[in-house]
């Protein structure tokens, strides 16, 4: 049977229509899928595992921000509220007073307040803290490790490749789900 020119034209139109419909369907489906995946996909942020951190000092120096987005945080529920605090006082201090010569923190970012005999509370001034981890080392060695470092997400730029994560000698900085952005001690424990 011979194909008429009219039939040929009809088939071409039908083909173009079908292709257009298919393209539209794929486009709408794709955009919807992308939107759906964006709305349900977990966001990730950088965070420090305080049990892996060795307080090497790089958090203070290698973050793209100055001062660093890494800050010391205090797990008050773990703290012993010690008079002789290893995170506050320099090793070997004679009198336990708050004179600058006695303080371990290079920027005096830890505040010591008397609570009641024989307890003292230690709070971090995050504007002064540079994330060097010196107090964390002292607290871990001589205390119970209630001071620890965390990346503050109100400051962190969440770089695609975190500089300090790359240079961390103990690989303590990894991606954490944005829904659980902090690894606070006390809430966060490892056996």
């Amino acid at each position: 049977m011979e194909k008429s020119p009219e039939n040929k034209a009809n088939k071409r139109r039908e083909f173009i229509r079908s292709t257009a419909r298919l393209t539209l369907a794929i486009g709408i489906g794709g955009v919807s899928g992308l939107a759906l995946s964006k709305s349900t996909k977990e966001e990730w942020v950088w965070q420090i595992d305080p049990f892996e951190c060795t307080q090497c000092g790089r958090c203070a120096e290698e973050c793209v921000l100055t001062p660093s987005a890494v800050k010391c945080v205090h797990a008050f529920d773990l703290c012993g509220y010690c008079d002789l605090c290893g995170g506050y006082f320099k090793p070997g201090v004679i009198d336990l007073h708050t004179g600058a010569e006695n303080q371990l923190c290079p920027t005096a970012a830890i505040k010591r307040d008397f609570i009641e005999e024989p307890f003292f509370e230690y709070t971090i001034d995050e504007d002064l803290c540079i994330g060097c981890g010196k107090c964390v080392k002292g607290c871990s060695a001589f205390g119970n490790g209630s001071l620890h470092l965390q990346i503050r997400h109100d400051l962190c730029l969440n770089c695609n490749q975190c500089t300090i994560a790359r240079l961390c000698p103990s690989d303590a900085i990894t991606r954490a789900p944005a829904s659980k952005p902090y690894n606070f001690k006390g809430d966060f424990t490892k056996s």
């Binding site: 307080q55 090497c56 000092g57 790089r58 203070a60 120096e61 090793p91 070997g92 371990l104 290079p106 060097c132 981890g133 010196k134 080392k137 002292g138 060695a141 790359r166 240079l167 961390c168 000698p169």
Partner: peptide, 20 residues
Amino acid sequence: MSGEIKDKANNPYAYEFDEF
């Protein structure tokens, strides 16, 4: 190569108590 900085021993903020 700059990853070798991981092995850098110098820590200007080191907690020193070796004398004790």
